[in-house]
Design a protein around this nucleic acid. Sequence first.
DNA 1: GGGTGAGTGTTTGTATCCAATTTGTATATT
DNA 2: AATATACAAATTGGATACAAACACTCACCC
Lengths: 235, 235
Amino acid sequence: MTNDPPRRGGGPQKIYDALKADILNMSLAPGAALDETDLSARFGMSRTPVREALQKLVADGLATTLPNRNTVVTALDFESVPHYLDALTLMYRVTSRLAALRRKPEDLARMRAAQAEFAAAVAASDAIAMLESNRNFHLAIAQAGGNRYYTDLFERLLNDGMRLLRLYYRSYQDSLPQEFVHEHDAMIAVIEAGNADTAERQGGDHARQIVGQLQRFIAPVLGAEMGVNQEGKAS
Amino acid sequence: MTNDPPRRGGGPQKIYDALKADILNMSLAPGAALDETDLSARFGMSRTPVREALQKLVADGLATTLPNRNTVVTALDFESVPHYLDALTLMYRVTSRLAALRRKPEDLARMRAAQAEFAAAVAASDAIAMLESNRNFHLAIAQAGGNRYYTDLFERLLNDGMRLLRLYYRSYQDSLPQEFVHEHDAMIAVIEAGNADTAERQGGDHARQIVGQLQRFIAPVLGAEMGVNQEGKAS
DNA sequence: GGGTGAGTGTTTGTATCCAATTTGTATATT
DNA sequence: AATATACAAATTGGATACAAACACTCACCC
């Protein structure tokens, strides 16, 4: 039993992974400061690997920086949401179609593993695990298509989706719908059968549901119903 | 007349810009080593900004690195060319359609400026300037569409395309075709007119031409015609 | 000739230090 | 009270130093 010390080079990745997870599940809020000196103390490393990790987060669009200013978690920019949803819808269709055309047995195994985690998270009402495994499930579909240009874009879209949907589910007290479990199962079956047209349609439908979720999220709760004629009196 | 010293923070960007240009025009060949210590000496800066620039190139896919190994210029991977062309074709259509739907006057001005540089480069038989201005022209079209998810992917595709097409034109002694100048003019007119269907079709046609160029590049020159019956005697 | 180990040189990853820039706070002025 | 100014503290950008990891060469052995 050898206890080899870790080889050099893993520091930045460890910091990156931890911060990325916090950003994606909204533990680190949009606009939150990512201080080199704080993070250096928190992870017990010098600022050099911290800076490298932050640069990677910036490259991924998860953090934003300006010269001589501290790095912050990237905002969820309302103006870009329609652009996001447009690209998400297209890429759900593209990745699903390609997965149906090109998937291999090991791709299906990866989808099924992620789906099992998704189902377990839904059963446990664990919203964060659900969002992570959902992301991993759809990423596995994209990877099955084998085109890294599409996969990279889709991964960025899934990352942004995780943050947006965290808001959505949090506003519904993390109540998770079981029908998505069935939908994922159906997706796997169609991709396995190589039915590209149906896969693409399913992908598009799935994206439309996300559009609906985000539309519900921004729907007014009280504004149209709350009486404003008398101070402090709700009608 | 004040001679202010440059503010801090521009070092990495300067290195990045210089290396990126060299990578895109194939002055820096695929696989070429990007040594921190060499570059530190070349740019007259410490390794810290060099490392930052290299990390950005890695994030852009233009350089590739492994732990404790030097960074190299990313290979032009033959296996991914069909994936590349698939994504390129789709994204030419998407960006052209969006540009026709959403362009503003300043977008058109930017397209026209890039197109003027393209025409001048073609007239001067300057292949590198032609490839750069072609990239800038098509990027301006993508930016006119206003969706940064599409623009980012398209920019990556245009970068890779610059490297591939550099090979193509170099193998034709940098002979540049005039008809692309007319095609770009036609694209601008259609986008200005807001004709999304025609714009999309033009985008797809343009991509198909690039497919044709790369197919010609890999066509055998001698293999099918050169006699091999007698040593050293060509038939 | 081929394989192995030791020694040397080079490069990379990280820590530490220095200096520029920004931010926060205290004090003075209106 | 509001604003301006001065100063200190904190953070970032970059340089330098140290050590781990790798590449290369040479000597030795089979």
